[in-house]
Each structure stands twice: as C-alpha cells, then as structure tokens.
C-alpha cells in the first residue's frame, strides 16, 4: 500500500469512521461523500460502533501476495449494526467456528506488512464478541 493512501484512509481503517447523510440519515461506510440511498451530498463524519454480525463468509487457503503467511484465514461480509455491509477479515476465530449471524466486533490489527523494510499496515478486522464478565462483576 502506498504511503499517501495509507495515510489518507487511516480514519476508516483504525476507527471505522464513515459518513452519515444529512438528508436521509443513511449511515455510509466506507466514506464516499455521496449518499448511496438518496444520492445527495453526504460528508458528515460518523464513527461506527464496530458491532455487527456475519452476513456471509469464506475461508481463504490460497492467499494473494502479501497475505500468504496468514493463510488459512476467513474473510466475511459483516453487517454493521448501523446498516452497511463491510468486507473484512475475521480474526481470533478458527474457520470451523464461524457461523452466519455470529455477533462480531471490530478490532484493529495488522492487515499486512510491506516486506521487511516497508510499512506495517493496520486496519479493522472483526472477531467474535469478547466475553464481558468484568462488567457484570463490577455491577455487584
């Protein structure tokens, strides 16, 4: 990934910053400045919650260049809680445990490295929602 593109897209990659349409309220990800629902201009930044569920998925055994060391890994279409469908890798899960409808949450992980000397590219992946007994314990 070239440096300028890496830098320009850091908001969406690190934090799921998309847009919300000021005309119809549609939540947009990735940001594209035009609302896909009403076709009006939509440039208002909106940070997504990172919660969603697996809409569909596929496990990659023959990985493209730059991703070989991660194979096998699972990519999914994730339906974000706010509506948009996002393509992303799943992480912290074994392929046989992935199910359609599985609740997932966004985490920031290494997407790839540009060789030994290049940049480390970070971005969003999704993983099964982490247990949260801590919150329950704290309410006692």
């Amino acid at each position: 990934m070239e440096v300028a593109r890496f830098w320009r897209t850091k908001g969406q990659r690190y934090q799921l910053v998309g847009e919300v349409c000021p005309s119809c309220g549609e939540k947009i990800f990735p940001p594209r400045d035009v609302c896909p629902a009403c076709e009006k201009e939509a440039k208002t930044p909106y940070t997504f919650s990172g919660k969603g569920e697996v809409y569909s998925y596929s496990t990659i055994y023959s990985a493209p260049e730059g991703f070989e060391k991660y194979a096998p890994y699972t990519v999914a279409l994730v339906r974000l809680a706010e509506g948009p469908l996002v393509t992303a890798q799943l992480t912290d899960v074994d392929a046989q445990d992935v199910k359609v409808g599985m609740p997932v949450e966004m985490v920031t992980r290494v997407l790839r490295e540009d060789g030994e000397r290049g940049m480390v590219v970070y971005g969003y992946k999704f993983r099964p929602v982490c247990a949260n007994q801590g919150a329950a314990a704290q309410q006692i």
């Binding site: 949260n132 007994q133 801590g134 919150a135 704290q138």
Partner: peptide, 9 residues
Amino acid sequence: GVQAPGTRD
C-alpha cells in the same frame, strides 16, 4: 456497567 472485558475475561 462498564462495557469492557475484565482481565479475567
């Protein structure tokens, strides 16, 4: 009511 995993989680 904190929405974050505890260390034990």
